[in-house]
Design a protein around this nucleic acid. Structure first.
Length: 259
DNA sequence: AAACCGGTCAACCGCGGCCGT
DNA sequence: TACGGCCGCGGTTGACCGGTT
């Protein structure tokens, strides 16, 4: 029976989102919530399929998203959870508030995989790689201060549950992050400190929202789910004309919603 | 200065699962 | 139980960027 396409693709726009489209989507969802993704494009006046809208919202426009690179602690959590859950990115993401599955998946493929391989760990199995000569690896271990091997600790840790497994990381490999340092990992400060993806690629897409997008908001410690009322209460902030968002959006009154 | 190349990441695609009928 | 619609997930693609030659 062949699967039907998620929507009628004829006449629908694809590719990068424009600021105007973002504005329409945010405005609609903040006002109405997202009851049915399939209906949203039409109701919001967008020439996109519902799927594209959902993706744009969940991966980029959601107000509770953190921006910028994953912190060391978050990275450790991802590795740990991956050892336990495998490539279930959405499950992993659900344990990291403000992070999306797409973001974590990308970070895994571009950063963590390499890091693990460099450490002599197979990113898929989380077991030591055997392809490297053991003696040579021993030298690398001494040089790098790694502690790979010595009984399959990664496997062992996998059986100990997430909370315990945190302890199985080679702390020496990662600079420790103190709780107070974690606290500065807000979208605002992350973006300002990091010279990474968020800022470096800001010119990639004219519609791309800078990591400073929500920098003017004060984020609660954890925002697992925002009610519409919570978001609506932010309208004064959205309209603050004094905030420099570092992008072109403000100049277009993109955030002056009439809620 | 231009061409090339590898890295990065937003966005797309298609499948699987859930749920209502 | 079977079917169809919708959503969410994971894999993949492709545009863009910075570094190198």
């Amino acid at each position: 029976m062949g699967r039907q396409p998620c929507c009628d693709k004829s006449g629908l726009k694809k590719g990068p989102w424009t600021a105007e489209e973002d504005k329409k989507l945010i405005n609609f969802i903040l006002t109405n919530g997202h009851c049915c993704w399939r209906a949203i494009p039409k109701l919001a006046g967008l020439l996109r399929c519902g799927k594209s809208c959902r993706l744009r919202w969940t991966n980029y426009l959601r107000p509770d998203l953190k921006r910028g690179l994953l912190s060391e602690d978050e990275e450790k959590m991802v590795i740990d959870l991956h050892a336990k859950l495998g490539n279930r990115w959405s499950k992993i993401a659900s344990c990291l508030p403000g992070r999306t599955d797409n973001e974590i998946k990308n970070h895994w493929n571009t950063h963590i995989k390499k890091k693990l391989r460099k450490m002599g760990i197979d990113p898929q199995t989380h077991k030591p790689l055997d392809i490297v000569d053991e003696g040579q690896r021993e030298e690398e271990r001494q040089a790098d201060g790694l502690r790979i091997g010595g009984g399959d600790s990664s496997t062992k840790s996998r059986e100990e549950g997430i909370g315990m497994k945190i302890q199985s990381f080679w702390i020496d490999d990662y600079p420790m992050i103190l709780p107070e340092e974690m606290a500065v990992n807000t979208p605002c400060t992350t973006a300002s400190v990091s010279s990474s993806s968020a800022s470096s690629s800001s010119s990639m897409n004219s519609a791309k929202l800078d990591a400073n997008l929500y920098s003017f908001l004060e984020w609660p410690e954890s925002t697992p789910s925002w009610e519409l009322d919570d978001l609506l209460s932010l309208d004064l902030l959205w309209e603050d004309p004094l905030v420099d968002y570092g992008g072109s959006l403000l100049g277009q009154d993109a955030w002056s919603f009439s809620l």
